[in-house]
Design a protein around this nucleic acid. Sequence first.
DNA 1: AAGTGGTCTAGACCACAGT
DNA 2: CTGTGGTCTAGACCACTTA
Lengths: 262, 262
Amino acid sequence: MEGMAVKKVGRGTYKQQISDDLRQQIADGTLAPGAKLPTEAKLTDQYGVTRGTVRAALEILVNEGLIISARPVGHFVRDRKPMVVRPQAEFRPRPYTPEMDAFMTEHEGRAPDQKIEVSIWEPSGEVAKRLQLESGELVVARRRVRHLDGEPFNINDSFFPLDLVRDSAIMRPENITPGANETLAELGFRQVRAIDEIYVRMPTPDEVRRLELGPGTPVAYHVCTGYTEDGKPVRVAISVYPGDRHVISYERRREAQPDSEA
Amino acid sequence: MEGMAVKKVGRGTYKQQISDDLRQQIADGTLAPGAKLPTEAKLTDQYGVTRGTVRAALEILVNEGLIISARPVGHFVRDRKPMVVRPQAEFRPRPYTPEMDAFMTEHEGRAPDQKIEVSIWEPSGEVAKRLQLESGELVVARRRVRHLDGEPFNINDSFFPLDLVRDSAIMRPENITPGANETLAELGFRQVRAIDEIYVRMPTPDEVRRLELGPGTPVAYHVCTGYTEDGKPVRVAISVYPGDRHVISYERRREAQPDSEA
DNA sequence: AAGTGGTCTAGACCACAGT
DNA sequence: CTGTGGTCTAGACCACTTA
């Protein structure tokens, strides 16, 4: 039988030994993707520890994103990237076709639910700093969650200084067909420069809620700040990409294959 | 007093209420970066629950990467990006200066420890698939962990089909000054195309060990596959970037500020 | 020596799905 | 109903660092 008793035999704590054992079974296919793990009670017997210890071991695997807990049914091996997602997505720092998302999505499925929430906000410190706002200045937030096949796919929030866009199309919750950047340009704030920052981190509870994330799912956090000719920041776009639903992928041609000599 | 008893008052489980409370204190600066949290015993008193429940709450924050546990000293608010790291790093899909890393690092500090482990491996499924190897074919692995100021900074492993590079400079553990790609080109395998894939996920235990990662630290996982003119894959480079030590950052100029209208 | 967090046990009650 | 995982309690022992 797999999962023999663990007491006194191996190295490390019990929960480590147990999670290592299960992780190995997942890696070598003994526990295939989608397979149901033994119940906590069974694992308790097999390994000869208490339920709490078994749960601690399972929690490790949950936090690694290897298994999920489907509430009163059991634990299951997670489908690694069962994913719809982004084959051949564009990742181009430089303009190719205007109005193209730096992380433009090629969806075979549909992407409905362009519900955009427009509201006036006191900006978070992060946004205020990038827009160089004095304390008390407000921003217009255009917040949306993009969906794909009914599932939340990513977060796409944009922030503009309220002073700049008051009464413009940007403040209306409809989709802006020419694009917010074009609207901004018509208001006299054409962006000529942008700084992109990409962070990798665990999601906030708010992101967990909006994207319906499971445990063990990190996100890529992309902040794009757009500047006008004279260096004034006029727009901050924040995108959040769940790690389990996205692969950033691109292709390079010609000579000089980077990634350094190793 | 902050952290009043939690029983029966708020919504959600106790550990949720407690972690929410602490998270709020971290967000609003009541608990500044680097600050020490109350001991588990104190929190136990303050919230009126058992130590196990307090620990469950703290574990949530640890897994979110908000706090760290410095073993027998206490829990501390994590310094968000206290980081050396990559201001203005290049992120250029296209060649600018040859031999430049797609994720080239600008280090103010030093980057010693270019220890490279060269070994002959049975390739993992991931590598074998990308190199289109038959089962049984071996690869040469050049594995290294780059350090910055003595701390592990990222993983940089390259894999080449053994047949192609046998007895070449690639099999020697020294740094290859002209670059592995140049060496490969001299062997007749000039790369003209590369496919990059970037995943965001939690680290494997192996990565945790090599990079000395703490809990709650996701990684960006970058796979670069290089192809010759006739479409033969000759090189797979795998880089792993800890989320707590890297910011991928780049700047764009000129018109067309992507990131889509929102 | 004292105090910290890390681990484990033993037992209890709950909400929720499927039978 | 039964069985599942989710939560919580109460108490114990340990390893480690610091004073």
